[in-house]
Design a protein around this nucleic acid. Structure first.
Lengths: 134, 134
DNA sequence: CTGACTGCAAACGTTTTGCACGGTA
DNA sequence: TACCGTGCAAAACGTTTGCAGTCAG
C-alpha cells in the first residue's frame, strides 16, 4: 500500500494530520468504532474533537475510502475500503477477522434458483469462536 | 401459528393490546422499523407513546420473540423470530424478502478450510433488485 | 491565497428513564 | 390484588451543525 497521504489524496481527501492518523489506525487495527477511534486519537491529538471524527468518517464513507460494518449486538465499526470480503466475529473476545471467500457462487446459485432476484452484492457476517477462544 | 396472545405468553410476555398489535403488524408486514411501527399503530392507539414501542421492542428482543435486522444504509428493522434465514434487499423499492438457504455448507466448508474459526451462525444480506424492479 | 478542515458549543433526533395511573393474570 | 405495562415528560445519548480561526494545496 502507498503511504497514507497519497492514498487519501487519491480519494479526493485532503491529507490532514487527523485524517492520516485515522487512516493509520484503521489500517493497523482493522475495525474500529467511533469511540475507540476517538479515544486512541486523543492520545496524539489532545484537542481533538469528536465532531472531527464524525465529519471525517462521514466524508471518507462518501468517497468510498472507508466502509461501515454493521454487526449484530454491537456498535458499527469502520474499516478501510478493500477487496470485497466477509467478517468472522468472535462472540467471546469480540475480535473481527476478514475472510476472502471465493466460493459464494454456490449459494448465489441457490438464490437464483429460488427467486427472481438480481444479485448485486452480499454482506456476510459469521458469528462464532475464534482460534484462541474456541 | 398460534394466535398472537398465546404466542406472546409462551415467550413470557404479557399479552397487552399494544403488544398484540405489534406482533400482528410484524407478522403481516414482515420487517418494520420503529417509526413505521409507531405510525401504523398510532392509527389504532391514538394515545400510543413512542416509549411504549421502544420498551416493547426491547423486551421482545430480550425474550427472543423479535429480532433486529441491521441493513446497510438503512435504519434497523424488526421481525418476528423464526427459522434461521437470510434477507434479500431490493435497492430500488427497498423491499425485504426472507430466503431460506439450504446450501450454506459449501461456504462454511471454505471458512473451515481457511481458518480455525468455530462457526455458530451467520448473518447474510443480499443486495440487488427484486423481481419487480430488475 | 483560497477553500477546506478543525475545534468548540449549541442544536438536533433518537432512545431511555422515572413516575403516576391503569390493566393483565 | 399485585405486579407489570402504559403514557407522559424529562433526561440522556449519539450525531450533526454553524461559526470563527487555521491549514493544506
Amino acid at each position: 500500500m502507498k503511504n497514507f497521504e497519497d492514498r487519501l489524496r487519491e480519494y479526493q481527501l485532503k491529507a490532514t494530520p487527523q485524517r492520516i492518523a485515522i487512516t493509520k489506525l484503521l489500517d493497523e487495527k482493522g475495525h474500529l468504532n467511533i469511540d475507540t477511534l476517538y479515544n486512541l486519537l486523543k492520545e496524539d491529538f489532545t484537542s481533538l474533537s469528536l465532531a472531527t471524527i464524525y465529519k471525517n468518517i462521514n466524508i471518507m464513507m462518501e468517497k468510498s475510502f472507508v466502509k461501515e460494518v454493521k454487526l449484530p449486538n454491537r456498535k458499527s465499526v469502520y474499516e478501510l475500503q478493500k477487496e470485497h470480503h466477509s467478517h468472522l466475529v468472535c462472540k467471546k473476545c469480540n475480535k473481527i477477522e476478514d475472510i476472502y471467500i471465493q466460493n459464494i457462487e454456490c449459494f448465489y446459485d441457490e438464490v437464483n434458483q429460488k427467486t427472481d432476484f438480481a444479485i448485486e452484492s452480499s454482506d456476510i457476517t459469521v458469528i462464532g469462536l475464534c482460534k484462541q477462544c474456541r
